[in-house]
């Protein structure tokens, strides 16, 4: 009798503690993440973080790059953490003072080329790839380089007309950044754009929709897809071939930062530190196709392993002030004007 009362009291106490603990967690430890990163892909990382920090109530909002940028600038309800693949916009936010610096051992170990001002961190290493349907190979030699792509567009236009898909530079921040970077590396990029224009290129705003189009058979060939999404897609869709260009391949890095006005700065910092930590990167390398940046992490998806597989021609988009030029209004207008001109130069 006595003993049972004891147990009863104990469990009451336990229950009270749990309930109040949950209350406190819900009241204090929320974490709002505005991200241009598919939840489905990053889920293992979020889950691991949630297990390690059960008191934090994770509010992950998956949006487009431009929407993420808009929300990061909002004064009314700023997010805690901002994640986006639109690198120029992310750097611009940091330059405008929207990010707060992070001081942590993970930051000290983080490679200098993958961060800016201790504020913004490129925590993934995603190659930019071409993807094509398997049946394309039966009509023409599959493309391995940018030059191959231009040749195909020139010589097999009858097959590819209306079946080529790429990012819209106007409607997608990632697409715009990738094209800008392409154009920086080679002026022949404009020939390619003109050829794509001649082949009546279709424009999408996300890699996901390009992949869906490829699987549907609407598109045969996709250019400038995010390798992370494409590789995951190809695992379940054997008719889609992912090709990392052999001449050069851009590498895009998702950039994350803690917002200056983060309503829950402690949780926000904890999350970004987790992204950069060995554990977080290990999950990234093993359970997502996002590729880990850290070279002390082992797994199927690491920057080091990608380099070993495709060789030296990986060109990460540099994280520095040059990115700011891409978001300059005049430059963006001029670029889009030229893009409009080039895309129809051959079709007239």
């Amino acid at each position: 009798m006595n003993r049972r009362l004891h147990v009863g009291l104990g469990s009451c106490l336990w229950l009270w503690l749990v309930v109040s603990g949950v209350d406190i967690a819900q009241a204090d430890e929320r974490l709002i993440i505005e991200a241009a990163l598919d939840r489905q892909i990053v889920e293992p990382v979020l889950a691991a973080f949630a297990i390690e920090n059960p008191q934090i109530d994770l509010d992950y909002r998956d949006r487009s790059t431009l929407e993420v940028d808009r929300r990061a600038r909002s004064h009314d309800s700023p997010p805690d953490v901002v994640i986006s693949s639109a690198m120029p916009w992310q750097l611009a936010l940091s330059n405008e003072g929207m990010a707060q610096p992070l001081d942590a051992p993970e930051v000290d170990q983080w490679p200098a080329w993958a961060q800016w001002r201790n504020e913004v961190f490129g925590f993934t290493f995603e190659p930019v790839v071409m993807a094509y349907r398997l049946e394309l190979a039966s009509h023409m030699p599959p493309p391995e380089t940018h030059r191959d792509l231009l040749d195909l567009l020139t010589h097999y236009r009858q097959w590819l007309d209306g079946r080529v898909v790429s990012y819209s530079p106007r409607d997608s921040g990632v697409g715009y950044a990738l094209l800008q970077q392409d154009a920086r590396y080679t002026p022949r990029m404009w020939d390619l754009i003109a050829a794509m224009g001649a082949a009546d290129v279709q424009l999408e705003t996300t890699t996901q929709r390009m992949l869906e189009g490829l699987s549907d058979g609407r598109y045969w060939l996709g250019y400038n897809l995010l390798g992370s999404y494409a590789l995951l897609w190809a695992q379940t869709h054997p008719d889609i071939i992912v090709q990392v260009p052999n001449d050069y391949s851009l590498v895009l890095m998702r950039m994350a930062f803690v917002h200056r006005d983060a309503p829950h700065p402690a949780a926000a910092k904890r999350f970004v530190r987790f992204l950069l930590s060995r554990r977080g990167q290990h999950i990234l390398a093993g359970q997502t196709p996002l590729f880990s940046v850290r070279d002390d992490v082992v797994g199927p998806y690491t920057a080091q392993r990608l380099r070993d597989q495709v060789g030296d021609h990986l060109y990460p988009i540099p994280i520095n002030a040059t990115l700011l030029a891409f978001v300059d209004t005049l430059r963006r207008q001029a670029f889009l004007r030229r893009w409009d001109r080039e895309i129809q130069i051959l079709s007239e």
């Binding site: 520095n320 002030a321 040059t322 700011l324 030029a325 891409f326 005049l330 430059r331």
Partner: peptide, 13 residues
């Protein structure tokens, strides 16, 4: 008109 040179911003930084 101006096409903002990326190198200028890098020099500034």
């Amino acid at each position: 008109t101006l096409e903002m040179p990326a190198s200028a911003l890098q020099i500034l930084a």
